[in-house]
Amino acid sequence: MPFSAYLLRCNDGSYYAGHTDDIDLRMAHHATGALGGYTAKRLPARLVWSDSFPTRDYAFAAEQQIKGWSRAKKEALIAGDWERVSRLARNRQGD
């Protein structure tokens, strides 16, 4: 069973990272506010990025990593700009 990490852009412009084993069902829950919490107060929330992983642990690790990223790095990920993602990672490390 594939697992997904995903990134939503909320109505207020903020980003929300999560993971799931059923991306379609999770997006339906986010859309209705059924999950409560962060996104329910910032609807609508739109899926802007997702990727599949072989295990829940890998998907969760990706979610946690993305949560720690800057807004600029998240936007580079959304754009698929891996050069910029890499550059931003080096900048954060002080290189």
Rank of each mutant, 00 (worst) to 15 (best):
M1L: 09
P2N: 09
F3A: 07
F3D: 00
S4C: 08
A5I: 02
A5E: 02
A5Q: 05
L7K: 06
R9T: 02
C10V: 01
N11W: 02
N11D: 12
N11K: 11
D12C: 05
S14M: 03
Y15M: 03
Y15N: 01
Y16E: 11
T20C: 13
T20D: 07
D22M: 02
D22V: 06
D24A: 14
L25W: 00
R26G: 04
R26Y: 01
M27G: 01
M27H: 10
H29G: 10
H29M: 14
H30G: 06
A31I: 09
A31G: 12
A31D: 13
T32S: 15
G33Q: 08
G33K: 06
L35E: 12
G37I: 11
Y38H: 15
T39Y: 00
T39Q: 08
A40D: 12
K41Y: 06
K41H: 13
R42T: 03
R42I: 02
P44Q: 05
P44M: 05
A45I: 06
R46M: 04
L47T: 04
L47G: 03
V48Q: 04
S50V: 03
D51T: 10
S52I: 01
S52M: 04
F53Y: 15
T55S: 15
T55E: 05
R56C: 06
D57H: 06
D57A: 14
A61E: 07
A61W: 00
A62W: 00
E63A: 07
Q64M: 12
Q65V: 04
Q65D: 11
I66M: 15
I66K: 04
K67H: 13
K67Y: 05
K67E: 15
G68R: 12
S70D: 10
R71D: 14
R71V: 15
A72C: 03
K74A: 14
K74P: 05
A76F: 06
L77W: 10
I78S: 12
I78G: 14
I78L: 14
A79S: 12
A79M: 04
G80F: 12
D81F: 03
W82T: 09
W82C: 00
W82M: 10
E83F: 02
E83T: 06
E83P: 00
R84C: 01
S86N: 13
L88Q: 11
L88V: 12
R90D: 08
R90N: 07
N91C: 08
N91R: 15
Q93V: 07
Q93G: 13
G94D: 02
D95I: 14
